[in-house]
Simulated scan of single mutants.
Amino acid sequence: MTNSGYTLPVFACAAAIAALHWLRQRQPIKVVSLDLIEPAKLAEIPVEQVAGLSANMALAITRSDPGDNLDLTRDTPIWALVEWGGVEGEQVTIKGGEGIGKQINADDQAAIYSYAQRLLKENLTRLLAAEERIIVTIILPEGRSLAVRTSNSAFGVVEGLSLLGTTGISQPLSSPAQLDAFRSELQQKASLFASLVFCIGENGLDLARKMGINPERLVKTANWLGPMLVEADALGVQEILLFGYHGKLMKLAGGIFHTHHHLADGRREVLAAHCALLGLSQQDIEVVFHSPTAEAVLKHLKSLDDSTGSAWVNRVYSAIAETIDARCQEYITSHSSRGQNTICGSVLFDRDRQIIIKSKTACNIMGNLC
């Protein structure tokens, strides 16, 4: 049986509730019951430790359990420091401590996003009298070291992890059970629309909505792009727009249709090969091939354009986008018994959620999606 576990915001909220309980009762609590809000159900979260630091301050610790998800936060401790006081008019003030990332595009605000904010505030406010105020500081002691193994910096979050997500249930994005859930959503939306948008993760979903794409046409795929493309074709979907972060989506140009980093990478090979085919100098190709991230390659190409008046970003990424489209068509055709296959177009964006390139097919598809 699949164990879906819970997301980091849930454990942060449980720790905060346990710390507040100590401030009130001067007694530790072993298990916290909290409202997940999304979905509307209660969760029972074990508390590892509670300590009173002063008459007005307490610390509680929980430990992450993401269930069957391949998640690097498994077993990591989550601390919540709760103290009386705060901002006038705000019953619950939330702060990010050590290990919580900073949003460099939002004046270094703590990377504690809307669901986490709502979860903490709604659960804690229910426990407070009308005149009471508290300050909650969330700390991830291992957050800074774990962050270097994520793509957080690619999306402008540095020095730690994010409290991100739209639900309290941890979705095991790499498990077959999660693929079944994605396919079920695809089947439902394919019955309504001939043109759909595939987004690997939350950043793509959010940006697509902001661009005016009809949210009902959005389908989350996580890393299961290959099976989802084949399923869409079997369901008779006419057009798929692949909408994703360039460091993920370019893997398709190398024939990698399950994009989890534990299985395959190939980004530097894709980038270096396209740069070589387009005539980039040997010296710059070596820089590209040895760059630590796709974002670093993009930065290097931009610097070449700025210094020489060239158009390497557009040339390289146009070629990659067209290759993605072609490889997707080949993949679908090789797995399909239909005579007329689903058409694919691709849109790639960068760490700042700015569109880098739209393939020719993507430009044609986008008019059907709003």
Rank of each mutant, 00 (worst) to 15 (best):
S4L: 13
T7Q: 10
I17A: 05
A18F: 00
A19Q: 08
L20G: 05
S33M: 11
P46E: 13
G52Y: 09
M57K: 15
T62A: 10
S64E: 12
S64C: 12
D65Y: 09
P66R: 06
G67V: 05
D75A: 11
T76S: 10
A80N: 05
L81A: 06
G85K: 03
T93P: 04
K95L: 15
N105G: 09
D107Q: 09
A111E: 00
Y113C: 02
L124A: 06
L146M: 10
R149N: 11
T150I: 03
L164T: 07
L164V: 07
S174A: 07
A177P: 00
L179F: 09
F193H: 13
V197N: 02
I200T: 11
N203H: 09
D206K: 13
L207A: 08
A208S: 13
M211Q: 14
E216G: 15
K220H: 04
L225F: 11
P227Y: 12
A232N: 03
L235F: 07
V237I: 05
E239P: 01
L241S: 06
L241K: 06
L249Q: 13
L252Y: 06
I256Q: 14
F257P: 01
T259E: 09
H261Y: 14
A264W: 10
R268G: 12
L271I: 02
L278I: 00
Q283N: 10
V287I: 15
H290N: 15
A296S: 15
V297T: 08
V297C: 15
H300C: 00
L301H: 05
S310F: 04
S310P: 03
N314T: 10
R315Q: 08
Y317F: 14
S318M: 11
D325G: 01
S334F: 05
S337V: 08
S337K: 09
I343M: 09
G345F: 05
Q354N: 14
I356F: 08
K358R: 14
K360R: 14
